[in-house]
Design a protein around this nucleic acid. Structure first.
Lengths: 163, 163
DNA sequence: CTGAGATTGTTGCAATCGCAACGAAACCTC
DNA sequence: GAGGTTTCGTTGCGATTGCAACAATCTCAG
């Protein structure tokens, strides 16, 4: 989760100007874009993006899934997920199913209402994402994704996240 | 602040696969990197990055500054800044100075303690940023910054944000 | 089998957040 | 200069968050 701190060999390096530029741009732009999509969802009366992501991840798994198996890909802490599921469950969007193999935990499964909500949210989410990203073309988007994935230490793969 | 919603001509476009890839990468990577730096600061016993940013912006201005003039570049809501300043003031890091020209507001100014803290934080912040971004080289960083700024609708300028 | 230790998930509490409402001063129009 | 509107900044309140502590179960060496 957390990247490693520099070792003896690298005594407190100051980031180069290009790195600082990239850092600043990354912070500002990701915030702006994220905010744009969140606002679109909220304006449409939908819950926040994390709800969508949980529903989508469950749907994508195609079978009841343990919280711990969700937490890692979602890059979210266990207690955060626990409470997120609390709220979603109280809205009738997911179910907690007794888990036989491991009685500590349980399986998560979206309800019909959960499926429906995810689909409805996508109808707002997709255009909002498209609108937020329209300033770059497909070629630039691929280049951007590659650079970001390299930055994040993720090799170029073909797993797509489309809904 | 909020980007414009699509018009009649563009009926609910679905983002292309490259755009979706870029979107996903942007979310994941910016979160990971941000998290890495925040952890480094916390582990060193320092407050969160937003405190640094406020102090830095004030220092960069070089003169007492109105909250509203800070809120825009910081991309933060007025009430968020108001409470952030409350906390920072109660730690003796900034002062609110009576503003003569406009009696609704006030000026913000870092204290000596504020200056010192920002400098101390940079000693942790800089290496953490460098560590988090070391997977890309300067050339890639510039390309990344350009793409991000284009995505965010910011033209390439020479204003640097280095501390 | 047994007890130490790791894993899974939840919860009490205090801190922080978003929202909407607010007070006060500035601005603007007639 | 009176009255309506806008801007600046704050605040009450309920929802959400992070942290550390926790219970329950699983794992596994001896």
């Amino acid at each position: 989760m957390r990247l490693q701190q520099s070792q003896l060999k690298t005594p407190s390096r100051i980031p180069s100007d290009p790195l600082q530029r990239a850092w600043v741009a990354l912070g500002r732009v990701s915030q702006a874009i994220q905010c744009h999509v969140e606002s679109a969802l909220k304006d449409a009366g939908f819950p926040e993006l994390s709800w969508y992501t949980v529903l989508w991840e469950l749907e994508r798994a195609g079978k009841p899934t343990r919280p711990k198996d969700l937490a890692i890909p979602l890059f979210i802490l266990p207690y955060q997920l626990s409470r997120l599921v609390d709220r979603m469950q109280s809205e009738g969007l997911v179910k907690r199913i007794q888990c036989e193999e491991d009685k500590r935990g349980h399986m998560l499964e979206p309800t019909a209402k959960g499926f429906a909500l995810r689909k409805a949210m996508w109808a707002v989410y997709a255009p909002a994402m498209d609108e937020a990203m329209k300033r770059i073309d497909d070629k630039e988007a691929l280049k951007l994704a590659d650079l970001l994935n390299k930055l994040g230490g993720i090799e170029h793969t073909d797993c797509s996240d489309k809904g």
